[in-house]
Design a protein around this nucleic acid. Structure first.
Lengths: 161, 161
DNA sequence: CATACATCGTTAGTGCCACTAACGCAACCG
DNA sequence: CGGTTGCGTTAGTGGCACTAACGATGTATG
């Protein structure tokens, strides 16, 4: 009975060759694993990626309507509702009506929220360190730059076509 | 009214700085986009990633029981059932009892399945090309190698701890 | 040989993430 | 004033990853 029997990636001889050759598979695998490490770490303090995205957006740009927050964080307006409910329940944000436009809510971070985003930042920094452990500083920079270029390329084109 | 109003990544000034600095976010973004491009491409011919994983494993290693197939493809045994049902319905594989062990099924590819996996290979190659367009051949190799190392590192350790 | 244990396929259900559709209300625009 | 657009919200879908349990079948052990 193997200890880590549930290793789902890089099963060595078991992994089809074509998987190894395909970039999308490689990024996918790496991302999935990094995501899992990050997800587990966040889960350890009762958070999810959506929470971090929203809190980070608020920290970066200040109070916002839900629509603006959705655009900035990448969380859909429809999903944002529940996420905000949870963040309100945990005391990390406040949701109040916008006096200037009664359709809108204004979302503001509480002090606990400020502390929370710092906490999550630190956790995710730790995840990064853990994930990138085998690379030198220069290599990390290189990887960052290459991924950044691919990323910008994917974002800039109309890949919808 | 912008055409591609639903661009969810690299929204320029709208993207929080901390997102850009965090590696897991960058891989995540890149992978999500590559995944989407690949997913859309597969969807265009009525396939999903699970289908490809299974077919590729069969092509690489030949007929197998569902348990072996699950290990090789990374699809959970429980999810594999439905995937195989679909592949059988589409005529890409056959599922029969294993005479040597009545607990097992033997999964074999049909000729249509052989053609299908080649088709999907080609589609995913196209996706790769599209995604990696901005990089030179040398840079792709470099990116591949760096990701490969991170990936191997993540797979080899007990990250569960 | 009988009994305990492991393995196989399967069903059901959970949770995260991404996304669509529709609705009621408020604001803006001609 | 009336139509359109934007807002928050509810509901629902689908892919992916994973857990729990079960009945049937193998294997191993006493």
């Amino acid at each position: 009975m193997e200890d880590n029997a549930d290793l789902r990636f890089e099963r060595g001889d078991q992994t089809p060759e074509r998987f190894k050759r395909q970039f999308s598979r490689l990024v996918g695998m790496t991302a999935a694993q990094a995501r899992k490490v990050a997800g587990d770490a966040l889960d350890g303090v009762g958070a999810r990626r959506y929470h971090y995205m929203v809190l980070a957006s608020l920290a970066e740009f200040g109070p916002a309507s839900q629509a603006a927050l959705a655009d900035r964080s990448g969380v859909f307006r429809s999903d944002l509702v529940a996420v905000l409910n949870e963040l309100v329940a945990d005391g990390y944000i406040q949701r109040g009506p916008d006096p200037a436009d009664k359709r809108r809510n204004v979302i503001t971070m509480t002090e606990a929220g400020e502390r929370r985003v710092i906490e999550l930042d630190r956790i995710l920094d730790g995840v990064n360190e853990k994930v990138l452990a085998p690379l030198t500083k220069a290599e990390r920079g290189e990887l960052f730059s290459l991924l950044g270029r691919v990323n910008a390329h994917l974002a800039r084109e109309d890949f919808a076509r």
